[in-house]
Design a protein around this nucleic acid. Structure first.
Ligand SMILES: [Mn+2]
Ligand SMILES: [Mn+2]
Ligand SMILES: [Zn+2]
Ligand SMILES: [Zn+2]
Lengths: 143, 143
DNA sequence: CTTCGAATTAGAATAATTCCAATTATTGCT
DNA sequence: AGCAATAATTGGAATTATTCTAATTCGAAG
C-alpha cells in the first residue's frame, strides 16, 4: 500500500518496481506519480502533458495503457461525468464526486459515518454490486 | 404530464402538439413514443432504428436533436454508464440504474422509502446539487 | 397565401479512446 | 554474460459516439 500524504507524494523514482502484482515500468511510475501528485482529477490528456515534462518521449497511447493498467489493478480510480472525458483519481477511499458547474472543478465527497449505499436502494434480491459510481453536479456555496 | 401506464404507452398520434413548452413535432413525437414504449433504456441508435420502422425518413441527427430536446425539457432522462453510449429513460421518478454485467441489461432501482441522498453525503456547506447520477454494475441473483 | 423562425436532413467534422504492427525493454533461463 | 520468450511502448491509423454545418423543409401566425 502506497502512502498518500497530502503534502509528500512519491516521485517516480520512489515507487517500487512492482505494486500489487503490477510491474511498475518507468512509464507506469511516471503516470502513477502524476496522478498521485495532485488531487485535481486530471484527464488522460492532462496526465499526458504533465508526464511529458519529466519524460518527453512518453506517448499518449502509453498514458492510456498505463492508466488502464493502474485502474484495472485498483491503484487509481476512473471517474466519469456524463459524456465528458474520463478523469483519474488517486483517492482509493470510499467517496464520490461533485463537479462545480461554474468552474468544472471536481471535488471528492465522502459518505457520512457508517453509511452503506446499498442499504438505501431497493436492489433485487441477491444482487452483487461490483461497481458503483455517484456523480453530482451543482453550485458551491456563494458562487 | 403524460401518463405512463406500463401497459399502454402512447402512439405518436396520441401525443399532444406541445408538452411543457416544447413543440412536439412529428419527429419528436415519434422519438418520444419510442422511448416511452419500452423500459429497456435504448441508445440513440436503438431509438433511431425503432423510429425508422414508423418513419423511414427520419435521420440520426434528428434523433439526437429530439432526444436532446426531450432531455433538456425534462421529459426523458439521459443515463450514462462509464464510457458506454448514452441511454434514454422515460421514468421520471427518482431512481438510479443497475447494469447486469452478464447481459448488459439496465434496471431501474428505486430508493428506499424516504431516503434523501444529500443526507448521507458530507457535502460542503451551501452546496446546491442540480444533477445527480448513480450507476451500479454487477451480477443479479443466481446468474 | 406568404412570411419567417424553427426543425430536419445528409453528410462532414470532431474528439476521446482503442487498435495495430513494429520496435524496444525486461525477464528467465543456460 | 548471451539468448529466447514475453510484455510494454510507440506513432499513427482506425473507430465511434456525438456534434456541427449549411441547405432544405416545415408550420404557426398574420
Ligand atoms: Mn470505474
Ligand atoms: Mn443527466
Ligand atoms: Zn476522487
Ligand atoms: Zn431508468
Amino acid at each position: 500500500m502506497i502512502s498518500l500524504d497530502a503534502d509528500s507524494s512519491p516521485t517516480p523514482e520512489e515507487l517500487p518496481p512492482e505494486i500489487d502484482g503490477l510491474r511498475m515500468t518507468k512509464q507506469r511510475r511516471e503516470v502513477f506519480s502524476v496522478v498521485l501528485a495532485e488531487r485535481d482529477h486530471p484527464t488522460a490528456n492532462d496526465v499526458f502533458s504533465r508526464s511529458q515534462k519529466r519524460m518527453p518521449t512518453i506517448s499518449l497511447a502509453t498514458v492510456y495503457n498505463c492508466l488502464e493498467a493502474l485502474v484495472s489493478h485498483g491503484l487509481v480510480r476512473q471517474v466519469n461525468f456524463e459524456r465528458e472525458p474520463s478523469r483519474y483519481c488517486p483517492n482509493l477511499s470510499d467517496h464520490c464526486h461533485f463537479q462545480d458547474e461554474k468552474t468544472g472543478t471536481i471535488h471528492d465527497v465522502v459518505f457520512k459515518e457508517g453509511v452503506n449505499l446499498a442499504d438505501f436502494l431497493e436492489l433485487p434480491q441477491g444482487t452483487e454490486v461490483s461497481h458503483l459510481e455517484i456523480s453530482l453536479k451543482g453550485r458551491i456555496g456563494s458562487n
